[in-house]
Design a protein around this nucleic acid. Structure first.
Lengths: 343, 343
DNA sequence: TTGTACGCGTTATCAT
DNA sequence: ATGATAACGCGTACAA
C-alpha cells in the first residue's frame, strides 16, 4: 500500500490496455464480459483507486462543489459566521448529506470579493458553487460572466433571477408569525430585524408582518420596528431598546431565532420573562430552539432540507449541463411552542 | 473570461517559455528582473490563474486537507453530527480560519470505515487529514499504514500516540469542574457522561472528578455516575434519571455542555430549577452557553482555538515533510457563570 | 532560459 | 465486436 497503483499498473496486471480499464470503469459497453470480470478482479487485487485529480484534468470535471460563506459585516471572518450562527452549520449539513451520496465533495470557504471567488473556482476547477446568505450586489456584478452553475439562497434582488435560487416563503413566514401573535390577543407587536431595505429576506418578512397587522386593522407603528445586526448580540441590543421604549408592547416578532435568543436574554437580565411579560416568535427553527425553556415558537424553514435542496439543485445543473434560472420556493411552517402567551 | 488561460497562453503572450513562467510563479531565482516584470504583466493582462488540479497532478501535492467526522453511533450520519453538535461547527471554523490563510482548502466529509477514508485520501490526493472526535480502534488499524500526516483530536488510546495529537487537559477539566462544585458546598455531585471505558475523554474527565472528590474526602458513589449518549437527548434522559434516583444530589457535572442543556431542560420540565434546585457545570464552552439563562458554568476548552491548532499542526507536518508524533495539550479554564449555587 | 518528459485518466483513432 | 495506441489536459523540473 505504499506506492500508488495507477491504471497502467492494473492494465499490465490484467494483461489489457489502459483504455479497456477506463471503459470498464465508465461502463462503456464495448468490453466483453470475461475481460470485464478479469479487470474488476485485477482492480480489486491491486487495490487500484481512481484518481479524481487526474480525471479532472482530462475531463474538466472535478466533482467538487464550492460552498461559500458571506461576509456581511466589515471584519466578519467567514469562519466566525459558521461559528456563531448555527444556521450555517445546519445548512452545510444538508449540503454534505446530499453531496456525499452523489459522489461530490464539498469545499468550504469564505470569500471577500467576486474576484477572489472566481480565482477559487479556477484554481480548483469547481463544478458549481452554492452561495450562502447575502452577498453585496457588487459581488454579483463581478460574477455575472461566470459560466458555472451557481445556486443562490435567499436572494430577492433583481439580479438574482439570473441564478438558480433556493428560498423559503419569507413573506408568508412573517405573516404567520405575526398572525399567530395577533390571534393570541397581541396588538402591540414589535419587529426585530436586520436592515429591511427594499428587497430581500428581511424586507419580505417585514411585508408579511405588515400584511398580518393590516388584516387585523392594526396600524403600523414605526417606533417599534427595530433594525439591528442579525445575530445574538444584535438581539440583545434590541431587547434593551425595547425595554426602554415609551411604546408599550406585549410581543416581538424576531426575523431570526438567534435574534430572538438575544432579546429573551436581554429581557431576562432585566427581570422580564417570556412569555409572561412578553411573547416572542422567531424564524428559522434552529436546533437550539428546543434547548431553551420556554421553547421558542418560531417559523420553521427546515434549514437542513434547504441545504439538501441546494445540493440537489447544483448537482442537477452540473449533470444536465444547463444552467437553470429556476426558483425553488420551500414552504414554511409555524411551530408553536412555549414562548407565546394568550392574552 | 470564457476560455481557460493556461501557462502556454501566457508564455506565448509574453514571448517566453512555460518553464520561465513556472519559475517566476514559484520564485525560482533564475529569471532576470525584466523578464520577470514582463511575465507578471502578461499574467495580469491575460487573467491567468494557476490550476491547482494540474499542479497536484505533477507535484503530488493538492493543498487539500480532509476534515473527517466521526460516526460514533449506529445510524449517525456524519452530517447529522455537524448539525446537532455545535462543537463540530466551532471546531471546523477554527480549521477553516487557519487553512485559508495558508492557502489550503478544506474538504469536509464523514466516513464510516478506514477503508472508505483511504479511498477518499487516494481519490483526492489529500495532503493530510484531521480526524474529529472518537473513531473506533478498528478504524486506526485500517489506517496505520497510511503515510499521510494525520492529526487526531481527543484520543488517549494506546495507538493514538502514533499520531499528531491535539487535546485538552481533560483530567484537569474534570477536576476543576468538580472542585468548583465542592468549593461551593456541594458534596453529592452526580456525573453525567458518555461511556467511560478505560481510556479516552470521558475516562479522563471522570478521573478528574474522582480526584476532586477524593481530595475533599467525599466517597465515590457509583449510583450517581450516569452514562448516556453525549448529546442533548442523552442529557435529557440523564436529567430524568437523576430526578428519579433515591440518592439525593445537589449538583451535576456534565462532560459536555450539550448534555448539560439536556439535563437542565429535563429538570425544568419537571419543575426543578438551575441553580436553585440543582447546580450544573458543563464542559466545552460552546457558544450557546451564553444564550441560556442562567448562563452555564463550564470548563472552556476553546474549541475554535483547538481547530486552529489542528490546522496548524497538520500544515506543519505537511510542509516539513515529517510526520510528528507530538501531542499538543491545550489548557482548560473554568468559566464561572450562573448555573452553580453556593450552598 | 528553454525544450520536453512526466504525472494519470480519457477518448478518438486505428488494428485485429 | 474488442481492444490497443497515442494525444491531450496543465503545471513542474531536469537536462541541455
Amino acid at each position: 500500500m505504499n506506492v500508488k497503483v495507477t491504471m497502467r499498473d492494473v492494465a499490465r496486471y490484467a494483461g489489457v490496455s489502459v483504455a479497456t480499464i477506463s471503459n470498464v470503469l465508465n461502463n462503456v459497453s464495448k468490453v466483453s464480459d470475461d475481460t470485464r470480470e478479469r479487470i474488476l478482479k485485477a482492480i480489486e487485487e491491486t487495490g487500484y483507486k481512481l484518481d479524481y485529480t487526474a480525471r479532472c484534468l482530462s475531463m474538466g470535471k472535478s466533482n467538487l462543489i464550492g460552498v461559500m460563506f458571506p461576509i456581511t459585516e466589515k471584519g466578519d471572518e467567514p469562519s466566525i459566521l459558521l461559528r456563531n450562527n448555527p444556521f450555517y452549520s445546519e445548512f452545510t449539513s444538508g449540503i454534505e448529506y446530499v453531496a456525499r451520496k452523489e459522489e461530490y465533495d464539498i469545499l468550504l470557504t469564505g470569500i471577500e470579493s467576486g474576484q477572489e471567488c472566481r480565482d477559487w473556482i479556477a484554481r480548483r476547477n469547481l463544478d458549481g458553487i452554492i452561495l450562502l446568505g447575502i452577498h453585496p450586489e457588487s459581488f454579483f456584478n463581478e460574477m455575472k460572466d461566470v459560466k458555472l452553475p451557481i445556486v443562490l439562497t435567499d436572494a430577492y434582488e433583481e439580479y438574482s433571477t439570473k441564478f438558480h435560487r433556493i428560498m423559503v416563503d419569507d413573506e408568508m413566514g412573517g405573516y404567520m408569525a405575526t398572525k399567530n401573535l395577533i390571534d393570541s390577543g397581541h396588538r402591540n407587536i414589535a419587529i426585530a430585524t436586520g436592515r429591511i431595505g427594499t428587497n430581500g429576506v428581511n424586507f419580505k418578512r417585514f411585508e408579511g408582518y405588515k400584511r398580518a397587522l393590516d388584516e387585523a386593522g392594526i396600524p403600523l407603528n414605526t417606533k417599534i420596528i427595530i433594525e439591528e445586526h442579525v445575530n445574538f448580540d444584535g438581539g440583545y441590543r434590541i431587547g434593551n431598546i425595547l425595554l426602554e421604549l415609551d411604546e408599550k408592547i406585549t410581543a416581538v416578532f424576531a426575523v431570526a431565532d438567534i435574534v430572538a435568543f438575544g432579546i429573551i436574554k436581554a429581557f431576562k437580565s432585566r427581570g422580564k420573562l417570556v412569555p409572561d411579560d412578553y411573547s416572542v416568535v422567531g424564524f428559522d427553527d434552529i436546533k437550539i430552539c428546543e434547548y431553551l425553556t420556554p421553547e421558542l415558537t418560531t417559523i420553521r424553514q427546515d434549514i437542513f432540507r434547504k441545504g439538501m435542496a441546494s445540493a440537489k439543485a447544483i448537482i442537477d445543473d452540473i449533470e444536465s449541463g444547463v444552467v437553470t434560472h429556476e426558483t425553488i420556493m420551500l414552504p414554511v411552517e409555524l411551530i408553536s411552542r412555549g414562548s407565546v402567551r394568550k392574552l
